[in-house]
Design a binder for these strands. Structure first.
Length: 589
RNA sequence: GUUCCCGUGGCCUAAUGGAUAAGGCGGCGGCCUCCGGAGCCGUAAAUGUGAGUUCGAAUCUCACCGGGAACACCA
């Protein structure tokens, strides 16, 4: 917003600075605007270090920091009186600081936010389409905390991209075929025939899978599973029908989870849909001499390093097993092609954990070699794993996974207990809704408030801690703001002037409101929801500070009026930033 | 062996190459005649090591140390 709102002032200042520097025989100086770090007043900072440094480089004997300060002072003197819209100037530490007139700035910010409402911070339409593929669960299996990071990250990325001005297509790619599915069906036929899932479908599906997995250790059982696999491969109608029915249960289970998380998809792809086209594509690769076929003694593979003349960089990509059955690579190649044939994409993002970086690099490179001109639009967004304390990887085989529904149930129960204490008079259904908003918000914030490249160590206590830098803290600030507005018992006052003398807490809060538009852009460019997570917390903290030091309802009428507007603006920006993270902003809790 | 990621107070996490490295948790000490205490205030405590680039480095480069990951038929 600062960029949008102060272009005139900036260009005016720039001209003034250039005029002065010309008298110092400096042409075409590098002038940039930064933020003034110390809170209390708003303004623009112009560092003179780059100018002084370029003088030094051109041979002039100057000590850069001293010279920067000298230039800052010189400019200050030459400008003289503060230009319109500014209150005063300052030359310090090699910076020229230009402070805005507080009253005008504050009013401009608050009015802008209130007028724009939920649209405040939205970027202008870019007319570019981005597909984001995320979640990618396997049917017939569990949904655990590791999957959760992917969904939450992918969902937040989509919201941020949309808000930043992109057209977003949410894609999901489900692993609905393979050994794990056959194992599941084998166990079902042998030990659970006729059973149907209960309330929690994913949980039930996983129980049968986990049992199958442990029974599979027995070689006799393994032989039976292989036998069933053969029937599947021969498309035995009975098995195909069972597959369709049981897959549907999984899909319904995932739908339950996505509904709870507030996620939905525009396009769902299945592995089973791209397997045949993938095998056909492999044949083309062989025919073109790109892939080497060693069947039946070896697999079909592409020696990328040999093709590209690189060394130990792209390695070897196996595209078909020696028995002719498909692999991930068999299917990811046609899937990418299908995506671009269905949509006119400017970018295709894969939200997949960091361990698959080389694999995706190989896939993207292979598509480039095949001559698809959109290959440079493929982008892998890697994220680190969720581990258990002691850097233990979650493994369903070793029973160390934290299941999604167990986690949500525990978090919701704890939130409910607190609501019971805080708001015993609320209706039970309302309490449940609040508990869910708080619990899911806390889990989401934990995942989003660290960089994608950092390992998350899952710890029950930390995940369920509702204090400190966590979603409930932010939601609470939102509740407090809403509470003030509600108790004001009147419509929000029309735009009013702000005083020149503002409390520090007011200044800091207003300052943070202005950051949303730029932070949305930064978060979208870098695919980093963390930026928004931090802003949301900073806003909540600033609001709480304001709340404690500046009374609204019992202030004198003119103060009350502008503060009510400030509260409304703050509430709006907090809600928007929470929404971008997929976190609910309740009105009471 | 090749490549990638991560090393910031006791623990967790921030910081477009810019001013005094910012928060949270946990310690310790305070705050409910006042808009909701899931809150607020105070307090001690940190950039793995060594070079380099730069006016300026937590940030960029290189080496080393420590942790994690990937590297032909798992997904």
């Amino acid at each position: 917003m600062r960029e949008i709102m102060f272009e005139n002032e900036k260009s005016f200042i720039k001209t003034k600075i250039k005029d002065y520097l010309e008298t110092e025989a400096i042409d075409d100086p590098a002038i940039e605007f930064r933020q003034i770090p110390f809170s209390g007043e708003w303004g623009l900072a112009v560092p003179l270090f780059p100018v002084a440094a370029s003088e030094a480089r051109s041979g002039k004997r100057v000590i850069v920091p001293q010279r920067a300060q000298e230039l800052a002072e010189g400019i200050k003197t030459s400008i003289g009186q503060a230009p319109p819209g500014f209150s005063h100037l300052e030359a310090i530490n090699g910076y020229l600081n230009l402070y805005f007139s507080n009253a005008a700035y504050a009013r401009r910010v608050v009015d802008t936010v209130i007028d724009a409402g939920a649209g405040f911070g939205r970027g202008t339409a870019r007319h570019q389409t981005v597909m984001v593929e995320y979640s990618q669960p396997n049917t017939h299996k569990s949904f655990h905390v590791g999957h959760l990071r992917n969904v939450i990250l992918g969902g937040a990325i989509c919201r941020i991209l949309e808000f930043a001005g992109y057209e977003v297509i949410r894609a999901n790619y489900l692993g609905d075929i393979g050994l794990h599915v056959v194992k599941w069906m084998w166990n079902y036929l042998k030990n659970h025939r006729g059973e149907v899932p209960g309330e929690n479908k994913t949980h039930w599906m996983n129980e049968i899978y986990a049992e199958a997995d442990s029974l599979f250790q027995d070689s006799e059982n393994e032989a039976e599973v292989r036998e069933l696999y053969a029937r599947w491969n021969a498309r035995d109608p009975e098995i195909v029908a069972l597959w369709q029915e049981t897959r549907q249960w999984s899909l319904e289970g995932f739908e339950q989870i996505y509904n709870l998380l507030g996620e939905s998809f525009d396009r769902i792809y299945f592995e089973s849909d791209v397997e045949d086209s993938g095998i056909a594509l492999v044949q083309q690769l062989i025919d073109r001499g790109l892939a080497q076929d060693e069947r039946p003694d070896g697999p079909v593979f592409i020696d990328l390093d040999a093709v590209l003349g690189t060394k130990e960089e792209y390695r070897v990509l196996v595209v078909l097993r020696s028995d002719g059955s498909s692999l991930y690579a068999t299917k990811d190649l046609p899937l990418a092609i299908q995506k671009f044939s269905e949509y006119d994409l400017d970018k295709s993002v894969y939200v997949i954990d960091v361990r698959q970086s080389l694999y995706l690099k190989q896939i993207f490179k292979t598509l480039e070699i095949l001559g698809f001109d959109w290959a440079d639009k493929l982008y892998h967004l890697p994220y680190e794993l969720v581990n258990l304390p002691g850097n233990v990887t979650m493994s369903s085989r070793e029973g160390t996974v934290v299941l999604f529904d167990d986690l949500v149930a525990e978090a919701t129960q704890r939130a409910k207990d607190i609501v019971e204490v805080k708001n015993p008079e609320l209706a039970d259904s309302v309490k449940d809704k609040i508990a869910e908003a708080v619990a899911l918000g806390a889990l989401k914030y934990t995942m989003l408030s660290r960089d994608n490249t950092k390992v998350v160590t899952f710890d029950w206590d930390a995940a369920l801690d509702f204090n400190g830098q966590a979603a409930p803290y932010i939601q609470y600030a939102h509740v407090r703001a809403g509470s003030i507005l509600r108790r004001a018992g009147e419509a929000l006052p029309e735009a009013v002037d702000f005083p020149d003398q503002l409390e520090k807490a007011e200044v800091d809060l207003i300052e943070l409101l202005t950051r949303l538009p730029a932070e949305v852009q930064r978060a979208s460019e870098d695919f980093r929801p963390l930026v928004i997570a931090n802003l949301a917390f900073d806003l909540a903290k600033a609001f709480n500070d304001f709340y404690n030091t500046c009374h609204v309802l019992n202030a004198e009428p003119t103060v009350r009026a502008y503060r009510l507007r400030l509260v409304a603006a703050a509430k709006q920006v907090i809600a928007t930033s929470l929404n971008l993270l997929g976190i609910a902003a309740p009105s009471s809790m």
